[in-house]
Nucleic acid binder design. Structure first.
Length: 507
RNA sequence: GGCUCGGUAGCUCAGUGGUAGAGCGGGGGACUCAUAAGCCCUAGGUCGUAGGUUCAAAUCCUACCCGAGUCACCA
């Protein structure tokens, strides 16, 4: 059986509203999934992480029980993703029975094989951070977290531990033999040094509160991270739907933010191995979006409501900007002025105007009917382009992919200036005019196909303006053959520009 | 403090041993199909600092300076 393409985002911790960063990771996954679907089977999973003390606290502060709180928040997240034209195949919530049941099963399996064992955890505990601290880490007897600094209390409790130390050597070995399984390099290096320092077993149960998945047989709830990581396999029906599980696991790409690399590249593979399953092919820890260089965060209060951006620029423009602006993996700075500039220059002037000027000329000179192709060799220059774009996408180099696509945008604009259709029309050189107009329409058709994963809605509009109905999401190998656009196709140019120019005062 | 990444033209960045690059901004030009859009020409920057290796370094090594991140939650 051929394996499907499986891409995941982290499941999002819903102790508050979503911000642009959540949208970012999910959009990236969507681009990957959409591209993968043109080639075959793909599965895209996202969801929400709903357990743990902080969710319980947030619910309490809102005067709600945790489940009601979560039920009210989840639609906001789903709405956000819908606003950005994200099409996931599954959305898992960690409070769903299908997840809880399997997490408990995992816990039992590991208890049976000895990787989960009963121990005593003693130490200084900060209830806010749900963390035990070493005495040496405390600052004046208080929690060392600079954003917390609360009093800590001495706790001694029986707890369930995961035998992470047992996987220290296997992990080192795996990292050494799979130097590209954690990307980018900086994340890999960070994790390697952690492995070299040595791993300790850690507690995976909590007794101080009860908002979590009950430990089978009693004794508190399961630590929220242990619960959360398992979503990637519970959603596939691990241990229940073997055919489905084998089809997609191990995951092709697991996208994460760089701050949770430790959980996904050290703890996660250890748990999987303990279950007898494989580690994912690739964990990619991307960088942060910063606001003019400043970290965006709930605590900093500078989080921008993504819906506002959608209203202002349109979802596809934001998708484009997020993938075009930075190198995926590195931090990049965002501002409305930057979005506006790329919007006007690249989407409006380069792409939108290209479509409009082409269709306008076609309407004027050929009544909007696609002419017969000519003897030009224009298309030959781009035979390899789809392959290069696809390669860049699957290599998670989205910026490079878009730059490659823009090579065609530029070439088409240049072609108009060089072949001067208005001159050809006056001179009555019908054959040359036909040939040019065909090249332009066909080039735009290619653009729509390659841009569809990035800007699904706008690509769809281009497709319709070209007078096409189906095939936008088909296999590139079959669709992107130069000459695929049929002569006599009746185009349907839109009254309004694809990306109307934004009149903005650049602050 | 340990570790990681970065410091290249005004701005954002690409470039990992062999004559310094792109986009944007700025300057100049020719055109008119188009969202006053597009096209052509134009950027001469001690490649953070100081040493070292080499026939040759932005590109390798050492030290240092500056910035960001990470080591506890956070896309």
């Amino acid at each position: 059986m051929t394996r499907g393409f499986y891409v995941t985002t982290p499941i999002y911790y819903i102790n508050g509203n979503p911000h642009i960063g959540h949208a970012y990771t999910t959009i990236v996954a969507d681009v990957l999934a959409r591209t993968a679907r043109t080639r075959g089977d793909a599965f895209f999973l996202t969801g929400t992480d709903e357990h743990g003390q902080k969710v319980a606290d947030a619910a309490k502060a809102a005067g709600l029980d945790p489940q009601t709180w979560c039920d009210r928040l989840v639609p906001k997240w789903k709405q956000l993703f819908a606003s950005f034209h994200v099409e996931y195949d599954d959305f898992i919530r960690t409070t769903e029975p299908r997840h809880e049941r399997l997490v408990q099963r995992v816990f039992e399996r590991l208890r049976e094989n000895g990787d989960v064992y009963r121990g005593v955890y003693e130490g200084w505990y900060c209830s806010n951070d749900e963390t035990f601290w070493l005495e040496s880490k405390l600052i004046e007897g208080r929690c060392p977290n600079p954003e917390c600094r609360r009093e800590v209390e001495w706790l001694s409790e029986e707890s369930w531990f995961f035998r992470l130390s047992k996987y220290n050597q296997p992990l080192l070995e795996h990292f050494r033999t799979h130097p590209n399984w954690v990307r980018p390099r900086s994340a890999y290096n960070e994790m390697m040094s952690m492995l070299e320092e040595g791993l300790e077993d850690f507690s995976i149960s909590r007794a101080a509160f009860d908002w979590g998945i009950p430990i089978p047989g009693g004794g508190g709830v399961i630590y929220v991270w242990f619960d959360a990581l398992l979503n990637y396999i519970t959603a596939l029906g691990w241990s229940e739907d073997d055919a489905r599980f084998r089809r997609y696991w191990p995951a092709t790409v697991q996208l994460i933010g760089k701050e949770i690399a430790r959980f996904h590249t050290i703890i996660w593979p250890a748990i999987l191995w303990s279950l007898g399953e494989k580690a994912p092919d690739l964990v990619f820890a991307h960088g942060w979006i910063t606001l003019d260089g400043q970290k965006i965060g709930k605590s900093l209060g500078n989080a921008v409501d993504p819906e506002t951006l959608v209203q202002r620029f349109g979802a596809d423009a934001i998708r484009y900007f997020l993938l075009r602006e930075g190198h995926f993996g590195s931090d990049f700075s965002y501002s409305e002025a930057k979005i506006a500039q790329r919007y006007n220059d690249e989407l409006g002037n380069d792409l939108g105007n290209l479509v409009r000027r082409t269709l306008t000329m076609l309407a004027r000179y050929r009544n909007g009917l696609v002419p017969q192709p000519g003897e030009t060799r224009f298309g030959e220059r781009f035979t390899e382009l789809p392959k290069r774009v696809e390669e860049a996408i699957f290599n998670l180099q989205f910026r490079d992919a878009l730059e490659e696509i823009w090579e065609l945008v530029s070439a088409l604009n240049r072609e108009i200036d060089e072949r001067k259709p208005w001159v050809l029309a006056k001179a009555g050189d019908e054959a040359a005019l036909d040939a040019l107009l065909y090249d332009l329409c066909e080039g735009i058709r290619w653009l729509a196909v390659m841009l569809a994963p990035f800007m699904p809605q706008k690509a769809g509009e281009i497709w319709e303006q070209l007078g096409l109905r189906t095939g936008l999401h088909g296999s590139w190998e079959q669709t992107l053959v130069w000459g695929g656009l049929g002569a006599q196709t009746q185009t349907a140019p839109s009254e309004t520009p694809l990306f109307p120019r934004l009149e903005i005062a650049v602050a």
